[in-house]
Amino acid sequence: MFLPDVHAEPDTEVLFQFIKENPLGLLITGINSTSVDFLQCTHAPFVLDLPNAGDNTTPRLRAHVAKQNPQVKAMIETLDTKPSETITLDQEVLVLFNGRHDHYVTPKFYTETKPDTGKVVPTWNYSAVQIYGKLSLYYDSKTPETGAFLGKQMHDLSEQCERSVMGFTGDGDRPQPWKVSDAPERYVELLQRNVVGIEIEIRKVEGKFKMSQEMRPGDREGVVKGVSRALTQVGVTCMGIHLYVPRQ
């Protein structure tokens, strides 16, 4: 990721909060394989585990994906390990999280600089966070370790999405969240046999908030108004369009 100082976000807590608010990540690997492409990617919602205060553990990401996924096949093919064991890849992996709002920025939005000098060009505003880390694969749901991992992962992910994404908290007139235990036990066991668990020890996290903060105040205001107007015209909700104030 290209990180000019004006766009880079150095605060790790802000970056982790971004992941919590945008949990759908793109898992990217580069693995030599005789059967699938070297570069593989998979979209998956992640759970972020942060250490408690005073705890020396490393932040981790958790997810689960289909066992028949070509990316999983590449991981298994290149390792001299029994599939029933937990597998740790030698290569680092990359996970990319994108913000929910991005938009093309026409020079017409720069209402201060365009009339003054005309020295403006189009761009695209967006936000993104990426992590590098070591991936462990939980392959066989019949083993106690993998079974426990998948059970916790499915429970935590459904809780996260039901409560944070859907707002199903059971408070007031809000519905109760769906729980994994609401599904038949044998059905859940069948699903677990057909997925693998993924745990990533985070080694590096970096993020970028490209929101025209390098532009003059009038231009930034013009971008906010212009994007909001453009989204309204096409019937898209304007939630999340805001002015990113540059750090002094």
Rank of each mutant, 00 (worst) to 15 (best):
Q176W: 09
N194G: 06
D171E: 15
K204I: 07
P175R: 00
S164Q: 10
E199H: 04
A148Y: 12
E145L: 14
K204D: 10
T123R: 01
I202P: 01
S181T: 13
G197N: 03
G167R: 12
D173S: 14
D173F: 09
G197Q: 01
Q176G: 09
D156P: 01
N125S: 04
V195A: 02
S158M: 04
I200S: 05
I200H: 04
T146Y: 02
W178H: 13
L150E: 03
E206Y: 07
A183N: 05
E189G: 04
Y139E: 08
D182I: 10
Y139Q: 15
Y139I: 15
K152P: 05
N194A: 09
Y132W: 09
N125M: 02
V165D: 12
K179N: 10
Q153D: 13
V180K: 02
D140M: 15
R163F: 04
V196Y: 01
S127E: 10
L157R: 06
L191V: 03
G170Q: 13
Y132D: 07
Y132G: 04
K152R: 10
K142G: 14
S181R: 09
G133C: 05
F149R: 07
F168V: 09
G170C: 13
R193E: 13
Y138H: 15
P175N: 01
M166L: 15
P177Y: 01
R203Y: 02
F168H: 15
E189H: 03
E185S: 05
G172S: 14
I198R: 00
L137Q: 12
T143W: 14
T146D: 00
G172I: 02
E162Q: 11
Y139A: 11
P144V: 01
N125P: 00
S136N: 14
E185H: 06
E145I: 13
E185V: 08
D182E: 07
G197H: 02
V165C: 01
V205E: 12
L135A: 13
L190A: 10
A183S: 07
V196G: 00
V195F: 01
G151L: 06
E206I: 02
T169K: 12
Y126S: 06
S136R: 15
P177E: 04
R186W: 10
P177R: 03
Q192V: 03
I202C: 00
G151E: 05
K142T: 02
G147T: 11
D173K: 14
A183Y: 07
T143K: 07
D182Q: 06
I131W: 01
M166T: 14
A128Q: 10
V188Y: 05
L150D: 04
L191E: 03
S164C: 06
V129F: 10
G133S: 03
L190N: 08
K142F: 13
V188I: 15
H155R: 06
I202M: 00
P175E: 00
